[in-house]
Design a protein around this nucleic acid. Structure first.
Lengths: 333, 333
DNA sequence: CTGAAAGCGCTTACAG
DNA sequence: CTGAAAGCGCTTACAG
């Protein structure tokens, strides 16, 4: 590489590399280096185009100014938006972000955590996988600064930033009930993670309160067989003699496939059947006449709080500093 | 941290850390360590839950197994898909990826390159910004392994992976001409980068050959004032007495805003005006009746080749190994 | 006001 | 077959 080191600068100037380090880190007063020397050192560093080696610095001070972000799939727009905002906020605090994907696999999450730890990240922001609880607990107890994002494990004493999925579902269902719907279906992942369970609980409670609950109207689909499962679920819901008059799609991916299927089946969305989706999609902009209401998550805030919570832990060396639950809004046009 | 080090293991076993290092790196034969000792060391390492410190390793061997990826905006679906595939392929080769955003700002690109270099990445994959040519040239000449992605600087002797934007435009326009369109408009960024210029050139050449070229039908819009510019462009195109009968949207972001505007203006897409877009969007799935043709870029391949090209440079220590241009297809339903 | 030394955790050539 | 030493580039406590 022929990278210029502190020592190279020191040699040219006939001083010690310690002095150069002091000056270049703005700690001249501590070392009480003379103004003149400091100036000379700065000039020489610029001249030689010196770039500090953060590896060496990290090794020495035990801190890398790097945080690891583990998401399910960076190509998913929800996670890529989160990642964008996390990077922006991390940068403000002087941190770089390494992103890793789990593809919802527990094994991959474990692997990625290991990879990031061996790179000495100062902390982790993790969107955990379904069966990852015990490993998350382990990490948390090891003292590694950690924030769970989007999903959490309620039994664990771990920091997190999530949304109030229960309330979000209530809002969605209440909207449909207010419109006069009587048979309201839920399409959701067969996933035991907190966010899905809360969305389901919100659905069930709201319908029970309205005296409209029917467990047969809940259709669970599998992440790994999504398209087929959603299509089958819709087909069965719509062929039923006692037809549904509303569908609540509990995630963006499910709603994309579901609505497309409804089009294929020539169902008139918002006429034959009322729909509410989770998360905004470009599609909604395109069909103002459809005006499909959707739940919006406060993604920039989720990113900001996750970074804040993590940086606080890193700085203060305390492992638990908070659980943050944000509100999601129903966006009905 | 109380991280376990090689020395800790060595101390417990009463051997040197060098021996431990040898064994744990599978180089026992070179050091000709006895089978028995090797086994003992491995057991102890597992017992103490040893995780290598990659910082120290990187510092010592001068290689971090990390590549830097610089994109315009990770929250944009095109770049997040690219990032996903790049990470997958990089992982296969044993590399981690640090992603940084430029937001199309030259200053930010320069800053991010510096950040990544000071973290001692082994190479860079960069989606360059408009005025970044001289800085890219500088890096390239410094011997840093480098691959440009999506866009390139034709005058520079730098590796790149791009698509054939010229041919892509030709296909799009030829399709419209075959449909009998006579007044074909182009909406494109006012950007001097290669990919935009090639898309424009493909448009111009195809229309000239067909005797349909009219420079007034090219509308350039600004990245930083996108919505307004696109809307103004469309309004002026559609108010013109000699109406356009086809529009080629040269990027995904432009087409999203453009089509939405057409809806607002009650233009019947594919009836009143034929449309072709660049890049696939979920929206197209939703309106099969619209059946808007679009150009698809081979994103997985772009990611794969970028990683391959970069890793090759890193391994072989040669700074130029190739320019790869892939085909994009017109997807007409 | 400035320098010399130690050490972060690792690997690699060298010596025995 | 195994250990001691040097060194990657940095920072920090210490000595003068």
């Amino acid at each position: 590489m022929a990278q210029v080191s502190l020592k190279d600068i020191a040699n040219v100037l006939g001083v010690s590399s310690a002095t150069v380090s002091l000056v270049l880190n703005g700690k001249e007063k501590e070392g009480r280096v003379s103004k003149a020397l400091a100036e000379k050192i700065r000039k020489q560093a610029a001249l030689m185009n010196y770039k500090p080696n953060n590896l060496a610095r990290g090794l020495r001070v035990g801190k890398t100014q790097t945080i690891g972000l583990i998401v399910a799939d960076i190509s998913n727009t929800f996670f890529s938006s989160l990642a964008f905002h996390i990077q922006e906020y991390a940068e403000l605090s002087g941190y770089a972000v390494i992103i890793a994907n789990t593809n919802e696999s527990d094994a991959k999450m474990v692997k990625m955590i290991d990879v990031l730890r061996s790179r000495q990240v100062d902390g982790l922001i993790i969107v955990p996988t379904e069966k990852g609880e015990s490993y998350i607990e382990e990490i948390s107890k090891s003292g590694m600064p950690l924030v769970l994002l989007d999903r959490t494990f309620p039994k664990l004493e771990v920091n997190h930033v999530i949304i109030d999925n229960y309330q979000a579902s209530k809002k969605a269902l209440q909207h449909l009930i207010n419109k006069g719907c009587k048979r309201l279906s839920l399409l959701i992942y067969n996933n035991t993670l907190s966010h899905m369970q809360e969305r389901k609980r919100g659905y069930i409670d709201t319908l029970k309160q309205a005296g409209l609950y029917d467990p047969l109207l809940i259709k669970e689909v599998d992440y790994n067989n999504l398209k087929e499962d959603v299509e089958n679920a819709l087909d069965s819901l719509l062929q039923n003699e006692e037809k549904v008059d509303a569908i609540y799609f509990a995630t963006n991916t499910i709603s994309m496939i579901g609505i497309k299927r409804m089009f294929e089946l020539n169902i008139k969305v918002q006429q034959d059947i009322q729909v509410v989706c989770f998360d905004k999609n470009d599609v909604f902009d395109f069909s103002p006449e459809l005006s499909i209401p959707y739940i919006t998550q406060p993604i920039p805030d989720m990113g900001r709080y996750a970074v804040e919570l993590l940086v606080e832990q890193i700085d203060k060396k305390k492992s638990t500093s908070g659980k943050i639950e944000l509100f999601a809004e129903l966006n009905s046009i």
